[in-house]
């Protein structure tokens, strides 16, 4: 029946939403794009469109009032089915784009890194050295086999990849001149202490801060200024303890 596929798509969106709320791992934030569903729905829409054109012609040529009524009825049902499909498709895509938006805000660098090399590093508050870049490339090569925290760009459709990249750029440009001191991407949890203890989860090379250079080696512990390492915590290099 018309609209059944759309229903399935909406169910899929609901499931993805539930998964987002219950799971914290980055990989489960965006489920794979349901390309077959979408394509089949679009096929259905195409068919409905042909029907509509056909019915429209019939209505114009119909003279018998009883028949006309029936045809019109058919036409409307047809039309509503199209509209329903459209709304469902839009809802699914909007839901995904909203998720991508929030991912962009929280995990900006990760997304860009997952997508194409190390573009993201240029927005970094703390400069990471070459070691780190090599690390990132390694992660990219063997994707999510090793690292569950790596964002998998393959879950997105081609259009979505374009969208997410453009949106990341937009966010970066917002951070420009006017709010240069604020760092809009920062944490939305109110800060309680200036200095915090952090543990290094992944080798991240050296970082330069006002208080000197830290060499971030796995499992070591530092007492650093929170605002200096905010970005590294977001990226999963450090963990607050």
């Amino acid at each position: 029946m018309y609209g059944d596929l759309s229903n399935k798509l909406i169910l899929e969106a609901k499931r993805a939403k539930q998964l987002r709320e219950t799971s914290t791992s980055l990989a489960s934030q965006l489920t794979p794009y349901q390309e077959t569903f979408v394509r089949n729905i679009l096929k259905e829409v195409e068919q409905l469109k042909q029907n509509a054109i056909f019915l429209h012609e019939e209505i114009v040529n119909e003279t018998d009032p009883m028949q006309l009524k029936m045809k019109k009825c058919q036409y409307y049902v047809n039309f509503f089915a199209m509209e329903r499909n459209k709304r469902c498709l839009l809802a699914y895509h909007k839901d995904r784009s909203d998720t991508m938006d929030s991912l962009c805000w929280d995990q900006q660098n990760l997304i860009l890194n997952g997508g194409n090399g190390n573009k993201g590093n240029k927005h970094d508050a703390t400069t990471l050295d070459n070691n780190n870049n090599n690390d990132d490339n390694d992660n990219d090569n063997n994707s999510n086999n090793i690292d569950n925290e790596t964002f998998d760009i393959n879950n997105l459709s081609h259009e979505e990849q374009v969208y997410i990249r453009e949106y990341s750029k937009l966010i970066t440009s917002l951070n420009g001149d006017e709010f240069a001191d604020i760092d809009l991407n920062g944490s939305l949890v109110p800060p309680s202490e200036v200095f915090i203890d952090v543990r290094v989860l992944k080798d991240a090379g050296e970082i330069q801060t006002e208080y000197g250079v830290f060499n971030l080696i796995k499992d070591s512990q530092f007492f650093v200024r929170q605002s200096d390492v905010e970005r590294l915590i977001q990226q999963g290099y450090l963990k607050k303890i």
Binding site: V38, L42, V45, E46, L48, K49, A52, F79, M82, E83, K86, L89, L90, H93, K94, S97, S157, E159, E160, V162, Y163, E166, Y167, L170
Partner: peptide, 22 residues
């Protein structure tokens, strides 16, 4: 900019396949 991005995205994936009235 954001609505432009979003509209482009939605247009490319969904809307361009729709009936013109929709």
């Amino acid at each position: 900019k954001h609505s432009e991005l979003l509209l482009n995205h939605l247009h490319n994936t969904v809307l361009k396949h729709m009936h013109e009235n929709l």
